[in-house]
């Protein structure tokens, strides 16, 4: 009886493994295929039948830099996503600190209101934002996108940091205060080390969202400030098939964010659902 139960459990485990891995490979396949294609020549990329084994080449990676100045777009992406994340953290950390440790009766309302600004569909304000950017010279500028991404992500950043601060045991802070620590010391030596992992994963989420944002970047940039989302979109023109180069550019564009995402998947749930699912 015992061994029968064991074998049944074991065989079920293997069934789950086969199913799970099948699904995982299917979902990941487009990314894998893109990665593979990035090392093919343009001829091999469109070959019939599709080639799984081929002589790999790095020529596409060299070409996208030489012909399209890939690094320029990559720099824009880094500057915009990191810039907007730092700005959002500067605004959000003090606000979240105040709201989680010194809540007033307005706190809940303020938090909910911040979240509600996230519900405003970007396309509803496309025209005014476009006109405002044009009037102020922020069209096709990194500063313009940094400001917009900061504002788009600010509610999520505040919410996430708020929920991390909430988890810091109040007893620790109070014990410290009894020992005569000043607010400054308390912040630097107690709160910051405790909240740092939370702030880091919030920053990661903010970078991921800014990096992949593709409404404002497509509509507000043309050349100078265009980030990678807009650069990749330029491959959509029907002239010529540059699949291998598209793949190389895409691989470089998604690699850092994919790795960030893998590391922060658990915190992402909290951020993306505004704490509604933990």
């Amino acid at each position: 009886m015992g061994t029968l139960e064991m074998t049944r459990k074991n065989s079920r485990k293997w069934l789950w493994a086969v199913l799970g891995w099948l699904v995982a490979c299917l979902l990941f396949f487009p990314i894998f295929w893109m990665f593979l294609t990035s090392f093919k020549t343009e001829v091999a990329a469109v070959a019939t039948p599709p080639q799984l084994f081929f002589q790999p080449t790095l020529e596409n990676y060299v070409e996208i830099q030489a012909r399209a100045d890939y690094l320029n777009y990559a720099f824009n992406s880094v500057a915009i996503s990191v810039g907007s994340t730092i700005l959002a953290l500067l605004l959000a950390v003090p606000a979240a600190y105040a709201m989680s440790f010194f809540p007033t009766k307005r706190t809940k309302g303020t938090l909910m209101w911040m979240l509600s600004t996230k519900m405003l569909p970007s396309v509803g304000v496309l025209v005014p934002v476009y006109i405002l950017c044009r009037e102020t010279g922020l069209l096709d500028s990194r500063i313009g996108l940094i400001i917009i991404y900061t504002l788009i992500n600010l509610p999520i950043v505040v919410w996430m940091i708020y929920s991390f601060f909430k988890e810091v045991p109040k007893e620790i802070l109070e014990a410290d205060r009894m020992d005569g620590a000043s607010t400054q010391q308390e912040l630097r030596h107690v709160l910051l080390p405790l909240a740092l992992p939370g702030i880091a994963s919030t920053a990661l989420l903010s970078i991921i969202l800014s990096w992949n944002e593709a409404f404002w970047s497509l509509n507000l940039t043309t050349a100078d400030a265009a980030p990678l989302t807009a650069f990749i979109a330029s491959f959509s023109s029907p002239q010529g098939l540059f699949w291998a180069k598209l793949s190389a550019a895409s691989t470089l564009a998604i690699a850092p964010i994919l790795i960030f995402g893998w590391f922060s998947q658990r915190q992402l749930v909290r951020g993306l659902t505004f704490g509604a699912v933990k």
């Binding site: 699904v23 979902l27 497509l218 989302t229 990749i232 098939l241 598209l246 895409s250 964010i257």
Partner: peptide, 21 residues
């Protein structure tokens, strides 16, 4: 990790990979 990866791919990349390749 493999299964959730598509979520981190920027929309322009996803769309063009599917459309072309």
């Amino acid at each position: 990790v493999l299964a959730i990866s598509p979520f981190f791919v920027m929309p322009t990349v996803s769309a063009l990979i599917w459309k072309n390749m």
